[in-house]
């Protein structure tokens, strides 16, 4: 994947396939500690201990349409290439937490890319799922809650699609403001 935001879309799609109703995406870019960390927590069906151990292996998947699963292995490979790692904690019936950690300044760390498209498309594509996205840098933090979009659509009596462009712009503007060097 060219952008980490595409890996994120991929991992969150696993959460949705696992019947999650709530997904929390936390991105921390801490240049002070040279850490770029992505955490995805869901309340999906979770995995057994054995599956959790094996899931970074590309030849392991829960899917029935094909016998290989590349999502987590690819994220793991990208993390390892930049001096980081992926850890997975999962409990059956409770949910899963995927943590991908990268060395922030490593040249092999892919850029985050278009996270606004990832997040807003997820909201539109899975209206039953509550998404909460929090982004932290040394300059500040911001949150984006999918209920904000649903709430505005209800308040203004407009289509959710009308809010796609404003929502993406809000995310981009907020990201800029916590990346500015004052």
């Amino acid at each position: 994947m060219r952008e980490l935001s595409l890996n994120i879309l991929d991992i969150v799609t696993n959460s949705i396939e696992a019947q999650a109703t709530r997904v929390i995406l936390a991105i921390e870019e801490l240049s002070s500690d040279n850490i770029f960390r992505i955490r995805i927590r869901d309340n999906g069906r979770g995995m057994s201990e054995e599956m959790t151990r094996k899931v970074l292996d590309p030849f392991v998947t829960s899917r029935t349409t094909r016998s290989v699963g590349m999502g987590l292995p690819m994220l793991n490979q990208q993390a390892m290439m930049s001096g980081g790692s992926v850890t997975i904690k999962s409990t059956l019936g409770v949910g899963t937490l995927v943590t991908a950690e990268f060395k922030n300044n490593n040249l092999n760390r892919a850029p985050l890319g278009n996270i606004a498209d990832t997040v807003v498309n997820l909201v539109i594509g899975s209206l039953d799922v509550h998404f909460y996205y929090i982004h932290k840098t040394n300059q500040g933090r911001f949150c984006f809650d999918s209920y904000w979009m649903l709430g505005r659509a209800a308040e203004q009596d407009c289509s959710l699609y009308d809010l796609v462009v404003p929502a993406k712009e809000t995310i981009r503007k907020n990201l800029l403001s916590i990346h500015s060097r004052g």
């Binding site: 799609t13 696993n14 949705i16 396939e17 899917r63 349409t65 094909r66 539109i124 594509g125 899975s126």
Partner: peptide, 9 residues
């Protein structure tokens, strides 16, 4: 309406 799903094979 637009929805998303996983791999269809």
């Amino acid at each position: 309406i637009v929805t998303q799903t996983g791999c269809l094979g």
